[in-house]
Design a binder for these strands. Structure first.
Length: 507
RNA sequence: GGGCCUGUAGCUCAGCUAGGUAGAGCGUCCGGCUUUUAACCGGACGGCCAAGGGUUCGAAUCCCUUCAGGCCCGCCA
């Protein structure tokens, strides 16, 4: 059984309605690794609903969290002063929005494209509007017990003047001050310079520290399931303390959970937006079809790490996805893979199989043709496809967009080429000029389709004692200005015959 | 120091939740095909399932121990 269904069945044993939560601190570009969390959650929402349950997906934007430091992608001068301020109160690197929205907006846009529409929880607003009141009160009332749980389970010592609230200093920065006294909704603390500061808890001046904030969210939002990264899952970590806090102090049942592994960039290690070693969700969508992105997450077990290779590996992933889809329609795909494919669809899986155009062909065509229509026409002419229906056209276009993005940013040089509009300047010897002459004659005579073109090269080889390889090489040089290129029969058939003959004739 | 995950064919991995004769893709080799951005078709080779022990009629699968690798936590989230 697919992992999402295993979880869904377990959830349904304890009730029909479920709140599946996911979230992130929007401190930088939100990357593919973070996307694993919400896609994992989304898969479980779908699985619960498929089995007759009612699951809702939440996405908590932890924008009350402070900016921890000036990240490498930020301007030191501008952001130095904002370190410590809540993300929701800081200006964005560009434009009028706030910092958190600057990173969240494109991420939500990306989520929509991969078919995920969570209910978004603005954590900053939650604090401002007093949604945490009840939980904060309870925790403050039982602060000795809370302290005990945190110290015992996490094994770390809390300061003598600990109070379960991250204070907000008069300069707007979150800080750990010395607790003085408390009288709901006010708490008083002494800051570093020795001033006494008042925070109004009801108005979100300050926030709960993470280890208390998380379990409070479970209760406030009614969370029954959450998938989280292994950083939270360690013994004595925030989940361990959270489940005790929520049970003993907040009187709520700990949510079911699942721990997922990181996504690594092939050969480079785990993604971190803070170091810049990451591919953001938006970037990802500009180079890979959304269903393939989902599939990269749905196919493996959540506890396996994923090595993502944005180079040639991406082409392989798309090919693999396409191939499994074809196997799916022929009914030969095993259960888990079939389910993974269903969960990878943006909408429902189409009942009728669409024509798949080999992705590598499209990589070639997108570099040799001007626009989508020409590409489609060419594919029909070469017999690779029949006329496309509306759905297929849409599909073709979105895939071509991905390919263009990929070629611009991630494709290795070996797959890139450009048809030379002007005749490349080549230093040819007399033998080579003869090859060209022979080639031209041959090309003039044949039908312009992949097989005849291909065949003609081997006929030339037989009659002229020159290797076919040499003919290939010279053809690529003349057309592309480089020694290698796409499979020649197919490639030539996609471009204009007269153009090719003229080119050969100009040497 | 503590914890989690992983270890199955040369490589990448599935199979483990629910025990019932070891699987796929790629690579290699052979055959076919007028051989190419890492083409296609057919076939073969290939594994003490990391090691040891236990439970069982029966273990890759469950339990214990060990070894190896990766990562997380012990600041913050």
């Amino acid at each position: 059984m697919h992992w999402a269904d295993v979880v869904a069945e377990k959830l349904l044993e304890s009730g029909k309605k479920h709140v599946i939560s996911s979230g992130i601190t929007p401190s930088g570009p939100i990357h593919l690794g973070s996307m694993r969390e919400i896609l994992t959650a989304d898969a479980i929402v779908r699985a619960v609903n498929d089995k007759g349950g009612e699951a809702e997906l939440l996405y908590v934007a932890d924008n009350a969290d402070p900016l921890r430091k000036v990240y490498p992608f930020l301007n030191e001068e501008k952001y130095g002063a904002y370190v410590g301020r809540p993300l929701a109160e800081i200006p964005a690197p560009e434009g009028d929005r706030s910092y958190d929205q600057f990173f969240l907006k494109p991420f939500f846009q990306a989520l929509e494209e991969v078919g995920v529409r969570p209910k978004v929880i603005d954590n900053y607003d939650y604090y401002k509007n007093g949604k945490y009141n009840e939980c904060v009160k309870k925790i403050i009332e039982s602060r000795n017990e809370a302290r005990d749980i945190l110290e015992k389970i996490s094994g770390r010592q809390l300061p003598k003047h600990w109070f379960p609230w991250t204070f907000k200093d008069k300069d707007g920065k979150l800080c750990n001050g010395k607790f003085i006294r408390y009288e709901w909704p006010f708490v008083y603390f002494e800051n570093k310079s020795g001033d006494e500061i008042q925070n109004n808890i009801e108005k979100g001046e300050g926030k709960l520290p993470w280890r208390l904030d998380w379990p409070s969210k479970w209760k406030i939002l009614g969370v029954t399931f959450e998938a989280f990264g292994k950083d939270h899952a360690t013994k004595g970590g925030s989940f361990d303390t959270g489940k005790r806090i929520v049970k003993d102090i907040l009187d709520y049942k700990e949510p079911h959970h699942l721990v997922y592994e990181w996504i690594n960039l092939k050969g480079k290690g785990a993604m971190h937006s803070s170091t810049g070693l990451a591919i953001s969700a938006e970037e990802m969508l500009r180079m890979a079809p959304p269903e393939v992105i989902r599939w990269l997450i749905m196919q493996p077990q959540p506890n396996r790490h994923v090595d993502f290779d944005p180079g040639l590996g991406l082409l392989n992933s798309v090919d693999k996805y396409d191939r499994s889809l074809q196997t799916y329609y022929s009914g030969d795909l095993e259960e888990n893979s079939s389910r993974a494919l269903e969960l990878s669809q943006i909408k429902a899986i189409p009942e009728e199989e669409n024509q798949t155009i080999p992705y590598r062909h499209l990589v070639t065509l997108s570099q040799s043709k001007e626009n989508h229509e020409e590409i489609e026409k060419t594919l029909v002419r070469t017999g690779d496809i029949k006329k496309l229906n509306t759905n297929e056209i849409k599909n073709l276009k979105s895939r071509l967009n991905c390919i263009e993005g990929w070629l611009d940013n991630y494709a290795p040089e070996s797959v890139k080429f450009k048809i030379q509009k002007n005749v490349p300047n080549l230093d040819l010897n007399s033998d080579e000029k003869i090859y060209l002459e022979n080639l031209k004659e041959k090309m003039t005579l044949i039908d312009w389709n992949p097989e005849s073109i291909h065949d003609s090269f081997y006929e030339l080889q037989e009659t002229s004692e020159i290797s076919a390889k040499e003919y290939f090489r010279i053809m690529y040089l003349v057309l592309l200005g480089k020694e290698r290129g796409p499979r020649l029969g197919f490639f030539l058939a996609t471009i204009d015959k007269d153009f090719v003959i003229n080119r050969l004739d100009s040497y």
